[in-house]
Simulated scan of single mutants.
Amino acid sequence: MLSKIIYRSYGDRFPSDENIQIVEVKSKNGLDDFIKLPFKLYSKDPLFVPPLFKDMYNRFSVKNPFFLYAKARYFLAKKGRKTFGRVTAIVNSRHNEFHRDRVGFFGFFESINNFAVARSLLDKVSEVLRNEGMDTIRGPMNFSTNEECGFLLEGFNDPPVLMTPYNPPYYNDFMQKYGMKKIKDLYAYICEIPMELPEKVLRVAEIAEKRGIRVRPIDMRRFELEMRVFKDIYNSAWQKNWGFIPITIEETNYLAKRLKPIVLSGLILIAYKDEEPVGFMGVLPDINFVLKKMRGRLNPFTILKAIYYSKKIRCLRLLLLGIKSEHRNKGVDALLFREGFKNVKDKYKQFHKVEFSWILEDNIPVQRLVEMIGARLYKIYRVYEKNL
């Protein structure tokens, strides 16, 4: 298997339990090692997409509003000067307040194909979380369900799209061997962008219009304000979803700043009933295609590359679809789909495929909707947990 070859190519010898040292990151050099480790581990993996170094440093800094209500500690698995793995221990007070539980999280997990390394990392996280009063370890979360989460379980032949996880298959073996149990599966569907939506979808969309539902694209000139509308819909529509954590205004502003450079006009839509925002759909281009060419670097040369390759992106990701509960089953989603795909077809003919992700394994209505337009399940991500 390719992933085993990749990981066996890094380091002279695999460490054993007695010579693995778990070191907490407390310096810039340590953070450098933490951020750069995946670039070494996946150096021969053709599907790996390197994130921008600048983005990662920002993400792990106090600039990230996640740290206004959560805390994280970062650890490296080392033998001498070589690094063989990494992990983050996360305590998210907003999660525990909202769900009234004591769940701690692990995230940003990476390891060579050696269970001793993985066990040492997870043991350390478990120790930290127990000391914080947690009774459960869950993950991976990078940092929460509002970001990347889960280990890829099925679908290793396709590259990851924008803001989705990627890992070798043996991470799932490590979790089972450590005693972790599945807590939730997350689905990704994909299809060719349809020339026409099914008649049933169009008919339901028309019924929604007759009921007074209207859809408009966000106003890019008021992007930050429009994202606040998204926040209100998100916190209402997703509040009963598994793992939900309310998004704050600070996180909304942070997300807006990150996403605005890649948003395409007409592909982020808001649905209204009279003057009330009742639904939201967000479709973004898969900039992973561009990031792969940039290799983590942001400089004049890679910016030119980004401009060139951005015109060659062929895939979209529908990553946000939410309807307030009192307006579900009234065709709002169908109307959003109709208008969104019409804008793709009219304005962005370069796109050929769209991924719908992630969708909870028990969210049958959304699964049936995307299947109706021809999408197929092609990836599964798994979130694990264990009692401490």
Rank of each mutant, 00 (worst) to 15 (best):
E110M: 01
T145K: 05
G107K: 04
S120I: 11
G139M: 09
A70Y: 05
P160K: 00
P168S: 06
A89V: 08
K82G: 10
L153I: 09
L76V: 07
N167V: 13
A116Q: 15
Y57N: 08
F109Y: 08
K71P: 04
F143P: 03
D123E: 13
L122S: 00
D55F: 09
H99R: 15
T164S: 11
G139C: 01
N157Y: 15
T164R: 00
L121V: 10
A77I: 04
P46V: 08
P140K: 06
N64V: 09
Y166F: 05
F53R: 02
P51N: 00
S120H: 14
V91C: 07
K54V: 09
D123A: 09
E147P: 00
M56R: 03
L153S: 05
N146G: 14
S93V: 12
H99M: 09
F143W: 05
R102W: 13
R102T: 13
K71M: 07
R119V: 05
F105H: 00
T83P: 09
G80T: 08
E97D: 13
N113G: 08
F60I: 03
G107S: 02
V91P: 02
F156I: 06
M141W: 14
D101E: 13
P165G: 09
N92F: 06
P160Y: 07
V62E: 14
F156H: 05
N146S: 08
Y74D: 01
E97C: 09
H95R: 03
M134G: 05
